[in-house]
Amino acid sequence: MGVDAFANWLRDAANTLHENAAYLTELDSAIGDADHGSNMDRGFTAVVALLDETTFETPDELMKKAGMTLVSKVGGASGPLYGTFFLRLGTALAGVEITPATVGEALKAGVGGILARGKAELNDKTMYDAWAPALDAYDEAVAGGSDLGGALVAAAEAAAKGRDATIPLVARKGRASYLGERSAGHQDPGATSTTLLLESAARTLG
């Protein structure tokens, strides 16, 4: 698998984030500041412009540049978080053959970047609540002999469950944490966009 598959992932993610922009912003209105959808849409639109302008030779080069673009264009907390994710993912993919195992390591490195930047823990009602079960499910699928597509489908399904499980949680990070108990009963927008990204990966990187 080469750079084209990763470019397709980013284009597909841009489409799905654009289609879901109003939905993400609505979720963010309930417990945040009503900008997650428009921010993600703006960031990934810039990533697509990057793909149209530049030819990339390798997945790592593409992922790093996409990360820098998101850092530069998204703002808010999701810019540094998703930007750092793609930067670290790209760094981990440099010089390695793309296999289910190496992609798993790269995803882990990316999520490690999110944790370093955001300092979130499980059940803080953040995007990490979707990433953590997704990484586990991915590893389990690979250990069971699954190919990349199968492992990503398992990861996306687990992320969706993690996303749904954020609904009853009380937020302890980000703007939603200011609501205290009133943040319970709402789905986390970051966990939702993470699930969209992984579903897109499952569609395109299989």
Binding site: D33, A34, N39, R42, V71, S72, K73, G75, A77
Partner: peptide, 11 residues
């Protein structure tokens, strides 16, 4: 200046 209610970016 960031977007409305959105932090500016590191650049």
């Amino acid at each position: 200046a960031g977007e409305v209610f959105t932090s500016p970016v590191p650049d």
